[in-house]
């Protein structure tokens, strides 16, 4: 391989630019990527978002559930994917709580339980102080076994979860009174980074019991391709990568971004009289009154734009080098 390369670069007379590109240290590409992502963050670049069909379907599925419905949230991801998935998790929880749904959190990934705790602490507790543990939400925690856990709890929840994460028997958790399996839930919300996750929920829950389950998924870009075939029969909605998160945030915030509880929480966090935590003088958060944490996805679309343009440029440049070297090589 290297012989071939040396030949191509030493025998073909290129222009200086092509020569630079062809022999460029890849660390220049790394630096370009760092700047493409870093600068928009510092410059607070934030392009507008308009929701697409999948985000609309996801929003509608939660929105049309009767208030107080039982929702099972499975947090099947870890910090490695939180950049993409945490904004979805935040928006899911805020949307469900704004509708008054009862929320049960579980995880098929060991670190997913931590992400669920984090979401409860940063979204549910400050913006929905009326939500009481056990009554309005409960933490089931993590269980080992991957899809085996789903397989069991679709018919017998207690077999896997005899207690919640803090050790309270499920029979004593008011919002789970009379629940013997997860078919009693009106909706399953899955935030998924891979195996086990959305695919397994589609296989072991919605495919096996099509009439019993309604599944919505928030997923990473990497695995979303594999999940499209399940929509719309086995999954009623899907948020794809950071774009899906940003679109969904727009929909949720338009309706529930500035509730009285949020305004009060913002005041407390910011502490300055009359100034809410989102109304930043420097213009970080254009949506007035909406907490920054509920706009994470939209903020990340700025770096995304510039980095995608860089990727396209790199591929084009790579091809310019290829064709330049190939055509000159051919003429010789």
């Amino acid at each position: 391989m290297s012989t071939q390369h040396t030949q191509s670069s030493t025998t073909v007379p290129h222009g200086a630019f092509i020569r630079f590109l062809a022999t460029m240290d890849r660390r220049w590409i790394f630096l370009a990527m760092m700047l493409a992502v870093g600068m928009p963050i510092l410059l607070k670049l934030r392009p507008p978002e308009s929701p697409g069909p999948l985000s609309n379907a996801t929003f509608a599925a939660i929105e049309h559930l009767p208030a107080g419905s039982r929702v099972l949230l499975s947090f099947d991801y870890d910090p490695a994917s939180e950049g993409e998935l945490q904004p979805m998790a935040n928006a899911f929880v805020h949307h469900c709580a704004s509708k008054g749904h009862k929320l049960a959190f579980m995880a098929l990934w060991p670190l997913g339980a931590q992400k669920a705790n984090e979401t409860v602490n940063t979204v549910l507790k400050p913006f929905h102080p009326e939500y009481k543990l056990g009554v309005d939400y409960c933490m089931l925690g993590y269980k080992a076994g991957n899809e085996g856990v789903i397989k069991v709890i679709v018919t017998d929840l207690l077999q896997q979860y005899s207690t919640d994460a803090s050790g309270t028997p499920l029979g004593e958790v008011p919002m789970l009174k009379g629940v013997s399996n997860i078919q009693a839930f009106d909706l399953i919300l899955n935030v998924s980074a891979g195996y086990p996750g959305a695919k397994e929920w589609a296989q072991y829950a919605t495919s096996a019991y099509p009439d019993a389950f309604s599944l919505l998924v928030g997923t990473t870009g990497v695995q979303s391709n594999q999940l499209y075939p399940y929509y719309p029969t086995q999954m009623k909605g899907m948020l794809v990568a950071i774009k899906g998160a940003a679109e969904y945030e727009v929909l949720v915030n338009a309706k529930y971004g500035n509730t009285p509880a949020i305004v009060a929480a913002q005041r407390m966090m910011s502490s300055r009289e009359g100034e809410s935590a989102s109304e930043n003088a420097s213009g970080d958060t254009p949506e007035s009154g909406v907490p920054a944490i509920l706009q994470e996805g939209q903020r990340r679309m700025g770096p995304q734009l510039i980095a995608h343009l860089l990727m396209v440029t790199l591929i084009v440049l790579g091809n310019v080098v290829y064709f330049a070297t190939r055509s000159k090589g051919a003429t010789r």
Partner: peptide, 29 residues
């Protein structure tokens, strides 16, 4: 978890953005 595991795993995967860029430049013909 908060200050060691979480930043380490998250950054490990963030590195891939750089390698995908480099691979795209070199291999997509």
């Amino acid at each position: 978890y908060e200050y060691v595991l979480s930043p380490l795993t998250a950054t490990m995967f963030a590195l891939l953005a750089f390698y995908v860029a480099s691979a795209a430049f070199r291999a997509f013909r």
